[in-house]
Each structure stands twice: as structure tokens, then as C-alpha cells.
Amino acid sequence: MHKKKIPAAIAAGALIALGGSVAGALPASAADGDAKLSVLHAVPGLTVDVYVNNALTLDDFTPGSLAGPLDLPAGTYSVAIAAADAADASAPAIGPIDLQLAAGGNYTAVAHLTPAGEPTATLYTNDTSTLAAGEGRLTVRHDAAAPAVDVLAGGAAVVSNLSNPDEKVLNLPAGTVSASVAATGTTTPVIGPADVNAAEGVNTIVYAWGSLEDGNLALAVQTIDGLHSNPSGVPAGSAGLVATNRPADPTGLVIGASALLVLAAGAGVALRRRSVAKAAR
């Protein structure tokens, strides 16, 4: 590491400054109501330093890397992204931009290219609402220097006409999706196909990044787990053979009761058939 590597204590000081407060220290653990912030570097070919409120927070951050999540008190944070060899944040490559983080929110700030290939940054709010049991969530974000795209799964478009920097959120049965990205209205992949695991109870966020013109389009993935819910029950019996309230069993044998029940069920069917026949007469 070079001269800008910062001791943890100074990094802590820098992060205290994030909250706009100079007193006190960040709590050792996340406080209720803190926001969660992740940072994705999706600008090809540029190692950067990330400054938050003018304090160096991510040193030598490389393309395709995901940092965080950081637990931060709600508030507005100024983020500037500078080339890694810059001395400070005075001439940032991106920003400074203001990130407004609400209490309890879950966010990803993405440094990426505009459709025209200029560096920019976008703050996304991640959907952390609870999923139904058996479902996964797939979030698709267009952060590439490329025109609008379709996302194809199994040859069919599941997301249509997605433009940079928009996103689309889908809840779907959990499982692996073979996904590819193509220019809107076409089916020839510019990315993929790639297997994306939309795991149960997880928000799997897939970013298309890079540049079509430069031939370096790629996918990046972020996952947020713990969004599952539980089965509503376990319906595990239908005959009453071991019921504590079953009618007195003269044989004293459960297996006998089973046979009797099956007989009774058969008799019941026969009786019903007879009454139907009778009614039809």
C-alpha cells in the first residue's frame, strides 16, 4: 500500500465526521434505525479513492469491487470519488454528490458510466421487504455505457427497455435463472447468458456495467439475505390413525384400525354410490 493507507483509528475519526458531528464516537455496533450503505465500483479501468464528507473512506478501490455495508446514522453524506493517485478530494472524477440516507434504509451507491461513457454515480434504494416463503427477489440495474436493454431468461424478455441508470425488481420462485442482456428488441446477448442464483429469501441485485463500445460489459452481483418468511404450517397427517380422540378401537391394534378405516372409507364410497343411484331413479 502507498502513503495514503490510513490507520484504522484515523478512518474511524473520518467516519465520525460523516455524521456531521465531531463529538463522540461511532457505536461499536449498529444502532437501531441506522442506514446501511454499500458502495459498488463499476467504472472500468480506474482505481479510485472514495471520500465521504471529505474524509478518505475507501482507499484504492478497484473496479468490480463491492464495499460495505456500512451502518451509518441517517443523514446526508457528501461523496466524492477521486483517482487513486490524487492527493485529496479537491478535484474528484465523480461528484461530490449528496446521498440522503433515511433511518432503516438500505442503499447502494454505484460509481458507473453514463450511456455516453462519462463517469457518474447513482444512489439506489434496495428493496428489503419480506419475501413470501419459497421466493427470491431479482433486482436488475443498468449501469453500463450502453443503450436500453432487455433482460432475457430462457430466451424470453423478463425485463424490457431498461435504461441506464434504471432498475427493475422482480419477485419470483427461488432458483437459478439463465439470464442474458440484449439491446432492447433483440435477442443477441451483449452479456451472458450467465447463471444467476435468485436464492430464496435473498434480494439478488445484478448490475450490468462497463462499456458496450469498449467491449468490457460485465455483470456484478450484490446479495442481501435474511428477507425470507417461514412455511405457514406442516400439514402432516390425514387419516386420524393416531388421534388421541379416535373412536374406541376393539382390536386394540392401530394397524387394525387402519384396515378398518380403509374398509370404512370403501364402504362409505359404496354407500354414497348407492344413494346416488337411488336418487337417479
Partner: peptide, 13 residues
């Protein structure tokens, strides 16, 4: 403040 955790965001093997 612990170091901010970082991961490679490429498609997981």
C-alpha cells in the same frame, strides 16, 4: 471503526 469489508462483485463461482 473496522475496515470496510470489500468483496469481488463478479458472478460467484
Amino acid at each position: 471503526m473496522p475496515e470496510v469489508p470489500r468483496t469481488d462483485a463478479g458472478l460467484p463461482a
